[in-house]
Amino acid sequence: MEHLFTWNYLIAIYLFTAGLSSGSAIVGAIGDILENMDDRIKRLATYLAPFPVMLGLVALVADLHRPWYFYKVLINYHITSVMSWGAFFLLVFPIIAVIFAVMVYFNYKGILRKLFAWLELVLGLAIGIYAGLLLAAIYNNPVWSNPLIAFLFFVSAISTGICMIILGGKLWDQVEGLIRKIIPGRFLPEVRLLNLDHQAIRSLIGVDAVIIIVELMVISTLIISYMLRPTGDVALGAFITGGYYLSFWIVVVLSGLCLPLLLGIMELRDRFTHRTNVIVSWVEPVLVIIGGFMLRWVVVYGGQLVYPILTYYK
């Protein structure tokens, strides 16, 4: 049965990293367009946006069975194929994101800045939605062919993107120190300390708590939507009542969504002393990120687990 899984963990890595980039890019672009966001959060979001998806692209190429022909997907486009659209967005997004990050880093304030902010927002939305749509477009799969999968991945993308910004805020200053050693000082703007203080982390966790509530609502709606279909039993058996249900309920729902939500609410209600603040600033984002990755893992493998059952159904 080794052919049962056509796609493996590399696709889950790609879907996860595309989500990280998408969420981060959307936060950064909105911050630049509205101009009322904390400057450190905006900068961190913009700097971090291009890199996860580059790792995801490496995973995507490594997953191909003919990896040396990968450039053909960038030359030949097929309008009815979702993957072809995605290849275009994934070609353009890292370029735009890197240019926009450089613009923000050097405080460029020209006419192009607004244009690139809007491009980053649109492309961030595009790759965030595409990640789920790639699976949702396979219409005979009882688990994947559900529009709520695309929506769930998108909401999870924003949630994990915000958590990446929190973690990045704790490590960015060391990274920038390395960058300043490579690039000569006269090309660089003045030092901006981007280390997020507790107030900034608190605001991000507040936004994240709202998105986690939306994500829990989407998951419950997804389960009901599976139940209402004639193939419901097969779809639920993939990762809700059977198959990967332990990973789903424990890692994704319990420790990836409910626990961070609880920690976020406790933080917003000031239930943590100064010494236990490490719980929200490290544990909460790490739990959300692990949960976000396991969500992709469970959906990618679960969808292929149930697939042959329906094929023989007449």
Binding site: T6, D63, H65, R66, F70, Y307
Partner: peptide, 21 residues
Amino acid sequence: CIGCGYCVLACPYRVRMMNDR
């Protein structure tokens, strides 16, 4: 062909099968 496996998954009859690299 780039060997992405999308056609294998898209086939509702599940008649395609990927060769090894």
